[in-house]
Amino acid sequence: MSQLNESEIRRIAELAVRQLQGQATPANVEKVVREAISRMAPKGEASSAVNPERMKNVPFSAPAKGARIILTAFGTNSIGILAGLTAELAALKCDIVDLSQKIMQDFFTIMILVDSSNSDVPYEEIRERMARVGETFNLKVIVQHEDIFKTMHRV
């Protein structure tokens, strides 16, 4: 991605003013600057470091390829919890990579490592839908990207 910041844009603009000399009307300058930027930036990408237009298009939530999510759920045990969670994951086209479950005196804990790279559902929706499944079983469901655990627990 191109990384033109404001000072670079200003520099280009000053250059354009100098080149245009007598004909440096705002419209002309803008045209020259636009051309200069489009030469520098790959097509379709806006440029400024602080351009609100570009920010609107920031793909915050698009899961990167191979994105792995860790789902943790805990609460009182009841019949069908595992089936409920995994059925919803399957519906979301999320692949279960690893799963670990424990029941301690009616207290149910589960950790599921999920590969969401084949899912076309945005991350926020996965999070919301899994939380809703949790609610039906009275479970607290927490969905987090795997990277936070790697960051915190590995040097």
């Binding site: 860790i70 943790t72 690893d98 670990s100 804990t109 950790m111 490592l113 927490i142 987090q144 795997e146 936070i148 655990f149 790697k150 915190m152 627990h153 590995r154």
Partner: peptide, 13 residues
Amino acid sequence: MRIELPEILETIR
């Protein structure tokens, strides 16, 4: 790299 269950539970806690 495998993330261990205790590590996940610690983060949640």
